[in-house]
Simulated assay, not measured.
Amino acid sequence: MLLNGALDVVLAALVAAPSVLIGVTFGQPLAIVVDLAACLAAALTIRWPRAAGAALGAVLLVYLASPPDWAETGEYAALIPILGTGIRSQRRERIGLSLGYWLILAVRQVVGYPGDPVRGVLSSLVWAALFAVMWLMGSAIAAINSAQEQARIAALAQQRLVLARELHDTVARSLARLSRQAHRAADTQDASQLGPIADGIGHAAGQLRWLLGALRDSDQTTLSSTGSLTTTVRECLEGLQAHGFQVSTAIDGDLDAIPLRTGGVLADIVKEATANIERHGASNRPCALVASIDETSADLAFINEVATANGQPAATTPLGLLGAAERLALVGGQLEARQEGSQWITRVTIPITPQS
């Protein structure tokens, strides 16, 4: 309503209504015509700020020659474009209209009080104050509109970030696993692996359908479908063992004692860390999960040997690790991933509070 000019039209109508009423009451049809012309020009500045603004200035010049007994109110229409151009951030137009209109109205005040120049000057200052009020109101509304637009853009960016993380953690991760299985099947020419690959493709398609359904559901407040932390750790470690990794664990503390929100974040990190071990780690070599949990913090470290073909560290941070770091930042946690010799270490530290 503010940006498309509806407010300008409403204000122009509010100025025109008393103009017609006063003109009819005092029998001043010409004053009605001039006032309506001023209101129409003010309303048209929405579409043509310069042309309609100049037309309004010409109408204001007519008031300089108007009879003293005219009770016109159309001159107040000059305030409408000042407010409207401010709302729509039309800076040049607003400056030009403000200076032009005020000069015309100031001259009219001085001419209107030929025997009392002080009164004319004071009336001119009153108009200056009214213009200043419209100027400030327009700027304030424009600032509010800009802040709302920035908030909308930030919200969209956050939604895209969440969607990117979820696509990576579901469909992309499943497809990467299926690609590795397909390569192994091709290398070994083992047709018995085609069944699990086909099942995996169906599972990935189901993940994509679930994600699209969650996005279409306006009542869906979160896209996460992570189970309990203990279950996630067990399933991920079993998956590594199934792919030939020699898995060892050392967990000091109770995983089930971690609050739900923090546990959900850690479960996502566990999935990402084990997926990276499966993708980049040396199979048939030891890997380990070391965890320490107490009342104030949780510290998890994943250690694995890097496969020879993947021995060089990546030039950029993988998307999965970026997403993990972003999740951890929301709950005050930190992620450290580094290579030491032939070993890759992924370490997570996260504080535990009653509210987490």
Rank of each mutant, 00 (worst) to 15 (best):
M134W: 08
G112I: 10
S124E: 13
V118R: 05
I153R: 09
G100Y: 09
A147S: 15
Q148C: 12
W127A: 02
R108M: 01
I104A: 00
F131T: 02
V126I: 05
Q109A: 06
R88G: 02
M134C: 15
R152F: 10
R94A: 13
L136Y: 00
L99Q: 02
A140T: 04
I87N: 12
W127K: 05
D116V: 12
V110H: 04
A142V: 04
I144N: 00
W127M: 06
W102M: 06
T85W: 01
R94C: 06
M134P: 10
V111F: 08
L99S: 03
N145P: 13
R92Q: 15
R119A: 05
M137Y: 11
R119D: 07
L97I: 15
R92S: 05
A155C: 06
P117Y: 15
L99T: 11
R88I: 03
I104Q: 06
R108D: 00
S89R: 15
Y113N: 13
D116Q: 04
P117M: 09
N145C: 15
P117S: 08
L136C: 02
Q90G: 03
L125Q: 07
R88Q: 06
Y113W: 07
G96W: 04
L156K: 09
E93V: 06
G100I: 08
P117N: 14
L105Q: 03
V118E: 02
R108E: 00
